[in-house]
């Protein structure tokens, strides 16, 4: 029988090989993928986030845990889709125009996936038009904008303006983050939310999607 504690530990320890192996066993045993995610994967990633918050984990550990989780989710996602399970929320994420940095954005995307969100990652150097068309097409609950550079942070403002121009601003909550971004800047450009790291991003995203269940 699949050892789910082993899966939990594999995600926590960033052991992708074990995470995939246990997930395969669980699938073979016809365990409910939604339960596997809600009872094992999400708690494991929540613990990863907690360890990051209290500075026992750092970026390398987050990246390793995310890889292990993704290895498992890649196997589970098709089964989830087939069963019609609803995600915690739908997210579109990207690094804004002019900025090619993606590690922070990738970490946020991974933590959100680990939190049960369905994440569409548009990559880096994403134009306002691309964000707008993705919001129109995918109808996400949340749009997450990332920037590392001081000179590209203003692209966040441009993107929010483009959403307004397209008449889509009210249809989606916008969260921003990255090194040059402050809560004041987030407010000033009209974002709905800000988080200072990947772990906090999950908490904020939950508040937007399920204010009643937010941690």
């Amino acid at each position: 029988m699949a050892n789910l504690k082993k899966l939990y530990d594999a995600v926590l320890n960033g052991d992708a090989k074990t995470a995939v192996a246990v997930t395969q066993e669980a699938i073979a045993e016809k365990l409910d993928p939604a339960v596997l995610i809600s009872d094992t994967m999400i708690p494991a990633m929540a613990e990863v986030g907690r360890l990051y918050e209290c500075e026992e984990y750092f970026v390398p550990e987050l990246l390793l845990a995310a890889r292990a989780m993704k290895g498992s989710l890649t196997l589970l996602r098709p089964l989830l889709a087939a069963s019609g399970t609803k995600p915690t929320g739908k997210v579109v994420i990207g690094t804004v125009k002019g900025d090619l940095h993606d590690i922070g954005k990738n970490l946020v995307a991974s933590m959100l996936e680990g939190g049960g969100f369905e994440v569409t990652d548009l990559g880096a150097d994403v134009s306002p038009d691309k964000f707008v068309s993705s919001v129109r097409e995918l109808k996400p609950d949340l749009l997450c904008l990332s920037a590392l550079l001081t000179v590209t942070a203003p692209s966040m403002r441009t993107t929010i303006e483009a959403l307004k121009q397209a008449g889509l601003r009210e249809s989606v909550k916008v969260m921003v983050g990255g090194a040059p971004v402050t809560p004041e800047f987030a407010r000033e450009i009209g974002a709905d939310g800000y988080s200072e790291n990947a772990s906090q991003a999950v908490v904020t995203a939950r508040q937007f999607c399920h204010p009643d269940k937010a941690a």
């Binding site: 960033g14 970026v59 390398p60 550990e61 990246l63 390793l64 890889r67 590690i103 990738n106």
Partner: peptide, 11 residues
């Protein structure tokens, strides 16, 4: 790869 390097400092 940048992420691979960060990971390597741990693993």
């Amino acid at each position: 790869d940048v992420a691979e390097w960060y990971v390597s400092t741990r693993s």
